[in-house]
Structure formats: structure tokens, C-alpha cells
Write a protein that binds this DNA or RNA. Structure first.
Lengths: 193, 193
DNA sequence: CGTCTATTTGAATGTACTCAAAAGCGGTGG
DNA sequence: CCACCGCTTTTGAGTACATTCAAATAGACG
């Protein structure tokens, strides 16, 4: 278990001693997820935070009119969950589905609270994680509000080439907040220019 | 200084002893800001995190075409800064301007790091703060992508009545990502329905 | 090979923007 | 205290961006 990605991930920000590693390991459960399998569905409650050891997943919402909106993609070395559901015990707004056969580590809400108690390094790690997540979301919002769809598509491709390989056009469209037909048109215009 | 809002704000999540309160106080600087005064301008570097003791501020971005986008409003009891600038020492993308005469507490980046060292309660507090900020941004993104402008306007008014009182229509429009002309039209339609 | 879904293409429509002008409103100075 | 100035808000016409619906084509997978 010592060669798990999650240690490298955490050690970007904190340095764990052997005891702390033990605490962490004993709080984690590895789970294999098959392509198209859901680890969370809208309406459920979710007490798990997921770390992607391998593979990739997608989080999306379906609104009352049936429109699907992709909130985030998570590839290897990323964290994912419905955070509002996880933290505030609200019903999940999101579906989380594997895009391919994947392995995730589950971290239970109560066990995470215990980890915070046992070592404030975990508190520090997640402070930095949420800090970065907040910044990323804010930049995304700014981007959405101030750039054209064409620009946003180009930036997405440039920023997340790994994701682009794994997902369909339709899913990228739903991340950008446009219809797949319109994205198709934009791609055509980019090629022709 | 003991009757500052900031203590109540922090004690929503952590309980500070007298020593910790001392640490905090000694890291803070009070600053009076006049209406229309900027505490940050695009392109500057920003080493301060601000807590609004009284009054209200607005953070906005102006893009290359001159289009203005409001990222957030901060009223009494809110935290505000250009977080990417503050945390990663990038040039500020945001202007932050007082909407009325206000009082803010400044927390310096280096002093905050020291606070984290001195007591992990501060680490915990900001972990929770960023966690909530992240959730809020994600819900906002979801909202933007899956709801009509009319719905988003209604929700804004319902969720932030205090802000609505203090800001112009134009500023709300730039927060929602539409033109003031279009928001005017939407309001008319709401009234007529 | 056949089925299912993704992607492309096109026509018609709706949503939101630009530009321009008029009306409303708040603050300032005489 | 009122008149004027500047900015916000409203209104309208014309335009651009993005959607819906439908149909054809292309790809993926059992």
C-alpha cells in the first residue's frame, strides 16, 4: 500500500511520518470501479471522499428539464466527490461515473474527522487542497463569464489534454455549458480558420 | 479590539483561547476604506486577506475587450481577496472596490503562515472556510450552467437580499454575466408575469 | 454484421448582445 | 433649494450567438 499515488499526492504539501501514514492507510478503502459504473447518484447521501489511483471519472448534474451539466472530470491523482453532500450531509446533486475501469481510494467522512484530530498535518493538507480547488473554481467562473465558447474550448483542450483523450465531445460540451451540436460547429470553424 | 466581528466569525468553527486571540490580533491591521476607494487593482500583487468588519466591497475583473465581470460581493462578516494572487503570488486579476465607507481587517500572507504554525486551529478554520468557499463556487457554476438568467436573478435576490440593497443593477448584471440592458428586460418580464 | 450512440450538417427559432436614444435619479454647486 | 451634470436604467431596433429539431453519417462494441 506504500506505493499508492495518494502518498505522493499528499507529500506535495505535507510530510507524513510512519505513524501518520498508518493512520491514513487504516482510514482508506480501495475500490475497483468498472467503466460506466456509478460511485454516486443524484439524491443519495455521500459520506465518502474519493481519490483516483488510476482511471478517470466524471461528475455531472441533471436538472429538472433533463439537461446534463458536467461539473468536473477527475483523472489519476485527483480528488473527487459531491463536496456539498459530503461536508454538509445534503442529498447529492451529482452523479459520479467511471469513464473507464478505475481504482479509487475511499476516505470516510467520520474517519477524516478523526484524522484531523490525530494530526493537524491532515488539516493543513486539506486546507491547501480546498484553497486550490476554490481558486480553480473561481478562475473557471471568471473564464465562463468573460470568454467566448471558442476560447474556452481551446483553453480546455490546452489545459487538460489528458482528459480530452478520454472523454466524448458531448461530455466536453456539457462541461463548457453548450450543446454538442454547437461544439461541433465551433470545432469546424477552428479547423477552417 | 475584543468586540470585533472577526472573533464571532472565527468562533463559528473554532474556539480560541486568550493566547490565540492575542496572536490573531497582533497579526491584524484595521483599515478604513472610503466609498469608491480600491483596496486592490488588477495587475498589482496582493499580500493581504481582508475581513469586512463593516460596509461592503465588490471584486471584479475587466477583460481585454473592456468587459467587466463581478466575481463576488463581500458584506459585513465576509472574507475577500484575489485568492490566486494572495496564495500564489500571481498578479491580481481583480479590482476590489468599496461600495460604501467600510472598515476592513487586513491579514498579511506571511503573518497568516505564522498563525498556522502557532496554532493548528487557524489551519482548521481556514480549511473550513476554503471548503465552504469551494462548495459555494461549485454550486454557483452549476447554477450558471443549468439555470436560465431569470432563475439565476431570482435566486440571487432571494439569497442575498442584503447585497441587493447596496449595489446597482449594472453590478448585479455583471455578476450574473449579462448586460444591464438584458437584466432590465428580465426584471420587466418578472413584474409583468 | 447489426445496433446503439456520437457526431455532423442544416433550417428555423430563441436568447442575449450592441448601439442609440430617452427617461430617471442622485449628488453637487451656485 | 433648485438646476444641472453624470451615471444608471429603460426601451427599441437590428444583429449575433446558441438552441432545438430532424436527418444523415460515422464510430464503437457486442
Amino acid at each position: 500500500m506504500n506505493d499508492y499515488q495518494i502518498f505522493k499526492n499528499m507529500q506535495k504539501h505535507i510530510l507524513l511520518d510512519e505513524t501518520e501514514k498508518e493512520y491514513l492507510i487504516s482510514s482508506l478503502k480501495i475500490r475497483a470501479v468498472l467503466k460506466k459504473e456509478f460511485i454516486l447518484k443524484q439524491g443519495q447521501t455521500c459520506k465518502k471522499l474519493y481519490f483516483v489511483e488510476s482511471g478517470s471519472l466524471r461528475a455531472f448534474h441533471i436538472n429538472s428539464e433533463g439537461k446534463e451539466s458536467t461539473i468536473m472530470f477527475a483523472v489519476q491523482d485527483w480528488w473527487i466527490t459531491d463536496m456539498n453532500c459530503f461536508v454538509n450531509q445534503k442529498p447529492a446533486m451529482l452523479f459520479i461515473e467511471a469513464l473507464e475501469d478505475s481504482k479509487v481510494l475511499e476516505l470516510d467522512f467520520d474517519l477524516l474527522e478523526t484524522l484531523y484530530q490525530k494530526s493537524s498535518k491532515f488539516e493543513r493538507f486539506f486546507r491547501i487542497l480546498f484553497q486550490n480547488a476554490y481558486i480553480r473554481e473561481q478562475l473557471r467562473a471568471l473564464n465562463n463569464i468573460s470568454c467566448s465558447t471558442e476560447e474556452r474550448y481551446k483553453q480546455f483542450v490546452q489545459k487538460y489534454p489528458v482528459i480530452v483523450e478520454k472523454v466524448t465531445q458531448k461530455q466536453i460540451a456539457s462541461y463548457l455549458g453548450v450543446t454538442p451540436e454547437f461544439l461541433s460547429l465551433i470545432k469546424k470553424e477552428i479547423v477552417e480558420s
